[in-house]
């Protein structure tokens, strides 16, 4: 298998080894081997059957030439043994009594004219049944009787841990690595426009199409419940305020998207939309002088 894999690799890849390409080669060469083996079996079967057929044909021709009646398979004069593949088929795959001979196996049952034949159970069906039972025993052993299979709580832990590692790799050194400690407001470029789109989709239902407030507070005045400024707004979006019905968006919005939407929200100040909700919270000054000391606590809920 290794040599095949290498061969395939030489034919299709360039010099640099790539783990994904290797996987692909491995799969392809395994498939190739399996298909070859199957093909081999089929070819052998065809050869054997053809040989048997030709032999019978030859006997028929010869017997007719000499005036001996050719009696076919059933006389015992010319014993025709079932070949290996026929026996294999009958034992493991199917073994019906041919329709012409079904009189031999018709039971003397007669229910409103319905008769029953005494055909064997189809061998492939029996084998399938046995295999599923073996599989079932193996499954129970693997998960419950010492096989070491993880239960679903354990599977969940593993899933979360794997994801943590992958996320750390994905975030390493990327713009998405922004968090509440280093986030800055975007003031130019397409970021604000993208932030507005996110706002309309995710925020407007509660905070109003123009940020005028509704179920949630108004964004267009100077008052903030959980602190204004990019860092506080970012933090409130990220962790939410579950007690007051603001959900945490960290599982739905990427950090960069939260930065964009927070930046957009800050642009709404002073727009004076119609139907604005009354101010809530405290006046926020950008120098941070009135930042409530407990904002962090509240924001983390």
């Amino acid at each position: 298998m290794i040599s095949l894999s290498t061969l395939w690799g030489q034919a299709t890849t360039t010099a640099a080894p790539d783990p994904k390409v290797d996987d692909f080669n491995q799969i392809m060469s395994t498939a190739f081997l399996i298909i070859s083996a199957l093909l081999f079996v089929v070819v052998i079967a065809v050869v054997v059957r053809t040989n048997a057929m030709l032999t019978r044909h030859l006997i028929r021709v010869e017997s007719e030439k000499h005036g001996i009646p050719f009696a076919g398979d059933n006389t015992g004069v010319l014993p025709v043994e079932e070949d290996f593949f026929t026996r294999l088929r009958k034992k493991y795959w199917e073994d019906p009594v041919p329709q012409e001979k079904e009189g031999d196996i018709t039971l003397d049952h007669n229910y409103d004219g319905i008769k029953e034949l005494d055909n064997h159970l189809p061998p492939w069906w029996v084998n399938m049944f046995i295999l599923t039972i073996i599989w079932a025993a193996g499954y129970m052993w693997y998960y419950h009787f010492g096989g070491g299979g993880a239960d679903q709580a354990e599977q969940y832990k593993q899933e979360v841990e794997t994801a943590k590692k992958e996320i750390a790799i994905a975030l390493a050194g990327k713009a998405n690595a922004v968090d509440e400690s280093n986030v800055t407001a975007i003031t130019e470029g397409s970021g604000i426009g993208e932030g507005e789109l996110i706002f309309k989709n995710s925020c407007a239902a509660c905070h109003g199409q123009k940020g005028e407030g509704g179920v949630g507070p108004n964004f267009t005045d100077e008052y903030w419940i959980h602190g204004g400024g990019i860092k506080n707004v970012f933090k409130t979006i990220k962790y939410g305020v579950p007690d007051k019905g603001m959900i945490a968006w960290s599982s739905q919005l990427k950090p960069a998207d939260m930065q964009k939407v927070a930046s957009y929200i800050l642009t709404l100040q002073g727009t004076n939309p119609p139907n604005a909700k009354a101010p809530q919270g405290e006046i926020w000054k950008e120098d941070g002088a009135t930042a409530p000391a407990d904002t962090t606590q509240t924001a983390k809920g």
Binding site: P96, E102, T106, L107, H109, D112, G113, I114, K115, E116, L117, D118, N119, H120, L121, P122, W125
Partner: peptide, 14 residues
């Protein structure tokens, strides 16, 4: 079996 007018294939299977 009534509609097809054929015997049931296998009593053992039943």
């Amino acid at each position: 079996p009534k509609a097809a007018n054929r015997p049931v294939y296998s009593y053992k299977l039943s």
